[in-house]
Simulated scan of single mutants.
Amino acid sequence: MIYRKDHIPKGTACNRRPALFMEATTLTIHNTGNEESSAANERGWLTNASNKRQASFHIVVDEREAIECIPLNECAWHAGDGSGSKSGNRTSIGIEICESGNYAKALDNAVKLVAQMLRERGWGVDRLRRHWDWSGKICPRLMYDGGKWTGWNEFKSRVAAELASKEDDDLEKAKVYVNGEKIEDGFILEGRVYVPLRAAGEALGAKVGWDNKEKIATLTK
């Protein structure tokens, strides 16, 4: 995936780049809501003369590239919660995931991009937010699933897995025992111990099941 910077100018119409300093504390995920628009199109829309909206964002990603449209140390108008000092607009980096073309690939790219950004900042997935978390807007809409937010939970899990896969050598290991017998090591991430389910289940004499379609793991004894 190509990552490039194409910042909109200061003074862009509708105050889309207010140039207000921001020290980000979270990353906010969005869907573009446009099934026909690429990352380049979304960047172009920010400076299109026919665009009358104030809304803006920091990064947009599609199946081919990610474009940084506003410097990450400046605020953008993406969270819909005003300009207060603790608002998402003033404290969070807005990342738009395009819905056009190969959305699965765009999602893959977004997972890798977000994991890299978290890693660079020493953050975990607890720093991820939905547009919904700031203003109640159903966004990222393709992760909503009728209010279950199945796609959102899966996205966070994939980002966590990407972080773990890159940092496996640096993760603190956890020795795991079942009824006094040592099994495969687990690891500690963000204060939680992750245990290999199959190894633990088999040590308990349980049947381990996995439904790949529904993403459900089961232990039956």
Rank of each mutant, 00 (worst) to 15 (best):
R129I: 02
L107A: 08
N73F: 11
N102D: 15
C69H: 02
A79N: 15
L72D: 10
W149G: 05
A106D: 12
N73H: 09
E190Q: 12
K175C: 12
N109I: 06
L113T: 06
I95V: 12
V111D: 02
Y103L: 14
F155M: 02
S100D: 08
K137M: 11
Y103V: 15
R192E: 08
E68Y: 00
C139E: 15
E96T: 07
W132T: 10
R53S: 13
V111G: 07
A160F: 02
L189E: 00
I59W: 04
K52W: 05
H78V: 03
P71Y: 11
A161T: 02
E154T: 06
D133A: 09
R129V: 00
S100P: 07
F187E: 09
C75W: 03
V114T: 04
I183A: 06
I188W: 01
E68V: 00
I67Q: 01
H78M: 04
A161Y: 07
N109R: 02
S56H: 02
L171R: 04
Y194H: 11
C69F: 05
N102V: 08
K166N: 15
G122I: 00
E120P: 00
I95T: 11
G122N: 13
G146A: 04
A55R: 13
Y103F: 15
C69K: 04
G82A: 13
S85K: 15
G122P: 11
G101Y: 10
V178H: 08
E65A: 07
A66P: 01
G101P: 08
E190K: 14
H131T: 14
R129L: 04
V176A: 06
S135E: 10
K182I: 01
D62Y: 07
I138M: 12
R64W: 08
S83Y: 05
N179Q: 13
D170Y: 11
L107F: 13
R130Q: 15
K105M: 15
C75L: 11
D185C: 12
K137N: 09
W132E: 06
H131P: 02
L171A: 11
E154A: 14
L118K: 08
E96V: 12
L171C: 11
E120L: 09
E184Y: 02
R121A: 08
S157E: 14
E63A: 15
E99T: 01
H78Y: 00
N89P: 04
M117N: 02
P140R: 04
G186I: 06
D169K: 09
S157P: 01
R119C: 06
R129E: 07
I97V: 00
I183D: 09
